[in-house]
Design a protein around this nucleic acid. Structure first.
Lengths: 336, 336
DNA sequence: AAATATTAAGAAAGCGCTTTCTTAATGTCG
DNA sequence: CGACATTAAGAAAGCGCTTTCTTAATATTT
């Protein structure tokens, strides 16, 4: 690979001049600029970004740390960030944390070591204190799906409470009164927020949560299967089921059918996230769309503002969007 | 961030010595080694990998170029590569090509500019010649889902022909004789291979492809919907349908049900890939598992062999695995 | 027209490491 | 025990750029 020296020699100028035209410093004579450009093309020269990064202490690239690589959710997030940054001529370096403290720390160190100009993160293990410290001492960060005091402007999150509220309200509006709930792991903020919204809607409809209709799941398909199985074994009637995410809803649908239920007549089921497969299910799943793409894009824009002087409008809290499909129906007054 | 100079000063040794302990060159006195390690911990020192990479001309990281970031297929591929390399203490840098020539070239240049030691690619736009040139002149590569002459050892691919054969054979074994086929875009190698296998199985069963039962789809859900719609409009009976991937199978299932068919009694449907959502479908989809995780892992191992002196056994061609679920049934001798 | 300000280009230092070269200290052999 | 080989550490060059400093040429001011 050609170096800047060879370009300079071929163009008959100094390396400083080559560097200036490469970085569009306007203080260079038109004639020399052309000579340099010709040489660059002739040699098919590409600046070594490692050297450039070392010398200039910036890299025009931002790191992104996700929990998983192989889920539609993080897929959309990566896609949004990558596209937004690419459009601004920045590069994206992706790393995985798996929600393990050690791996998340490792990922951050790796990205910092790579001279990233900023970080966009979806992490669960790193503490608020650690995040504040990273942002203060090391590198600007943006956070997705998290609220950290002192970093409010950098946090892009979803109004999960509102989503939980809407899901439940949709069912009460349809006349359901016996509504079961399969929650996410309650120590997770989004899980508890969704549940809080659910309870608010129940109260508003003059209802309250029957503990026998509540099950704490794990956000996986198995949570939906195990949850519905256990709920049905408790022998308390219910005509509708809220699942705190689509994965559990998918499990619940499978389970319900295995138990001989007729969907959606015997049981209305609503999910959360509008995961890629939600409309592959049968019946197609009514759910709340989690605008993760938009949130990823916004996080990228926030970074473009803070480190690359752009002036995008930033929205920190997003609202889920209700998606009506076929898995919910008016209450038939029948028992399940 | 501390530099190697500060570590050297604190430890009372030269930077060379610090560098030696950092890189485990065994020619350093135990006592000094300990001093250095103490200093490293005290300062929480992390070598700047950009500087290290510039100086040593290697980076202990390999680039991976995928077509998409947000599909389960590439998700699994990235996950496999990342995990395999991480286990070997190498890092992964991910980039997207979107099957566009310009973006794929850009991605390669980016990764090379980042001093990656090697590249793992899933690309469609870059020509065989270009790939050979990259591997010869610039950087070692591994290729997934592709066969390039002269790069045989570096190609990890699936026996699509065999998969197509098994899919069809499964149906003929069940007694089906009128079998429709929704293909992928035939210019794509995997699509034509799958079709070739299908035809081989037909011939083996004493059948042949009725052109009225053939439709060339696009590998998307819409291809399944449009395909089945058109096939049914042709008014030629069939009792089974092969879709060249799961996405189209999903579309076909939706479409079939919309048209009032009873699945799988009225129509057996088989997919290909065993995509993440295949078992979310109803009926759960019989399909052929595409071992993309294993292939990603193998590509990573190939790179570990070629540039990092490991000695893994390499398998270049993988076989799909038949997954029996509920979307196929013995032929009822009825008409659809 | 002399003194000063402005501009455009080159020279050279330096980013934080690795690695070769050098030197000093030790060990080995006839 | 002196000549030579071996080892362990430091000194210094260099990876390929950017950017500050410097200088020479031109423009502006009084």
């Amino acid at each position: 690979m050609a170096t800047i020296y060879e370009v300079a020699k071929l163009a008959g100028v100094s390396v400083s001049t080559v560097s200036r035209v490469l970085n569009s410093h306007k203080t260079v004579n038109e004639e020399l600029r052309e000579k340099v450009e010709k040489a660059v093309n002739l040699l098919n020269y590409r600046p070594n970004s490692v050297a450039r990064s070392l010398a200039s202490n910036r890299s025009d690239s931002v790191g992104i740390l996700v929990s998983e690589l192989n889920t539609p959710f993080f897929g959309e997030m990566m896609r949004a960030v990558e596209l937004t940054l690419r459009t601004a001529n920045k590069h994206t370096i992706i790393t995985v944390g798996h929600n393990k403290l050690e791996q998340e720390e490792d990922g951050v160190d790796f990205l910092i070591g790579r001279n990233c100009d900023a970080l966009i993160m979806h992490v669960e293990a790193l503490s608020d204190d650690m995040l504040r410290a990273i942002n203060r001492d090391k590198i600007p960060i943006a956070l997705i799906n998290r609220q950290v005091q002192g970093l409010e402007g950098a946090c892009i999150s979803l109004n999960d409470e509102l989503g939980g509220y809407w899901a439940c309200k949709h069912l009460t509006d349809l006349g359901h009164t016996r509504i079961a709930y399969i929650a996410g792991p309650i120590h997770k903020n989004d899980a508890s927020q969704r549940l809080a919204g659910h309870n608010r809607a129940l109260k508003e409809a003059g209802l309250s949560m029957d503990p026998r209709l509540f099950y704490e799941g794990n956000y996986y398909e198995s949570g939906g299967i195990d949850g519905l199985t256990e709920l049905m074994e408790r022998n308390v009637d219910f005509t509708a089921l809220v699942c705190a995410n689509d994965w559990m809803a998918s499990g619940a649908i499978t389970c319900a059918r295995d138990k001989g239920l007729n969907l959606p007549q015997d049981l209305s089921i609503i999910g959360f996230d509008n995961d890629m497969f939600a409309h592959h299910l049968y019946p197609k799943l009514t759910t709340l769309h989690n605008p993760i793409y938009d949130m990823g894009e916004m996080a990228a824009k926030y970074i473009l503002n803070t480190v690359y002087k752009q002036k995008n409008h930033i929205k920190n809290v997003f609202e889920p969007q209700f998606i009506q499909r076929q898995s919910t129906e008016p209450c038939q007054n029948s028992t399940s």
